[in-house]
Amino acid sequence: MSTPAISIQNLTKVYPIPFKREKVTAVQDLSLTVEAGQVYGLLGPNGSGKSTTMKIVLGLVTPTSGRTEIFGRDSNTVESREDVGFLPENPYFYKYLTGAETLDFYGKLCGLSRAKIRDRSKELLKLVGLENAADRRLGGYSKGMLQRIGLAQAMIQEPRLLVLDEPTAGVDPAGSREIRDLILDFKQRGITVLLCSHLLEQVQEICDRVGILDHGVLIREGVLGDLISIENQTEIILENAPPELLAQIREMIGKSSGRLVAEHRPQKTLERYFLDVTGPKQS
């Protein structure tokens, strides 16, 4: 088996409260593995230890005990960060830089050559749909554009792992959809994604696997489909079904040992509806 993208072993983080004897346990004995190529959703209410876990993975916070690795390299080492791109929650990049300058700055931090930065920058700006805004200052970007430039900077050195903290917080539905599509696009390219969110619907749409944290403890973990499917129920969705067919089906159910739990017209999500009426007309 290949090296996991993220490996967390028996992680515990205790914060001392300054000038007090009490301590706060943010994460307790957490063990977790994110395999390469997965989109992993880390869920949990505010204060559940999601952010702390993420910060420890990124080496921003030192664990009290336990160990975290990125592709086999200890998170405490600077080198481990060569393979990871990070987009924090509600980031403010330097407002006075343009989109292209922002990517240039982060590219330099990754030690990329000038030519490489130019190429990557062009490629990423196109990917995130900011080609036309490349020379505008970030001060004039919308929330959604900021998140997208944030994704581009996270990807500048072609990392194999992307860590995203609430990537769609505060972004309108269309922007949110774009970001979601980008994440799926990255997944297609084989990039591992760790997504921290409390927008469950979104997680449900894109994650392969989820972990649920509560009070610093991992309470559930597994393949998304397994976790939420209802084992003894089946859903059939029909299109243009004549009433006779429906009557037949009901009759057949009545004869079987099964039970009809509900019958209704599926509704599209409000989001879908919103996007249909506001978005550009599809050809």
Binding site: V78, E79, F86, V163
Partner: peptide, 8 residues
């Protein structure tokens, strides 16, 4: 965070 999450 974005800076220190790079290999800096």
């Amino acid at each position: 965070y974005t800076i220190l999450a790079k290999p800096v």
